[in-house]
């Protein structure tokens, strides 16, 4: 699969409520609230801290997933990023300029 070098960051104004197993996230553009599971919330937290590539996230997931799911870490990372981007919670960041898409 082609290697995605883009970095992703959380959209400005995203807020996360931690309720243990589930997380509720505020979408700053649509003002919707989304229900996220632990993996998605963890990924969102990571990209909120600093822009990450897909590979960074796959590495993180590999560490936290159970053995049998580790091989699918790349796929999970890609899927999660896609969903979070579709919801508008995550955006890809241009290298250097720091501007959006």
């Amino acid at each position: 699969m082609p290697h995605d070098d883009r970095r992703y960051a959380a959209a400005a104004g995203v807020r996360v409520l931690d309720f243990g197993d589930e997380f509720v996230v505020f979408n700053p553009l649509s003002w919707d609230a989304h229900l996220l599971n632990t993996a998605a919330a963890a990924v969102l937290h990571l990209v909120a801290e600093a822009p990450r590539t897909e590979a960074d996230l796959a590495a993180f997931l590999r560490e936290v997933l159970r053995d049998e799911e580790r091989d699918a870490a790349d796929q999970h990372a890609r899927q999660l990023l896609l969903e979070l981007a579709q919801l508008g919670l995550v955006r890809s960041v241009e290298e250097g300029s720091g501007a959006d898409r």
Partner: peptide, 25 residues
């Protein structure tokens, strides 16, 4: 579960959509 309670309360509110981030918080 609290996340479920959050969702059900938001849906059953008079003005949750309008107050935006303050309502979420």
């Amino acid at each position: 579960p609290r996340a479920r309670a959050f969702a059900r309360l938001a849906v059953n509110s008079f003005n949750y959509e309008i107050v935006g981030p303050d309502g979420f918080d």
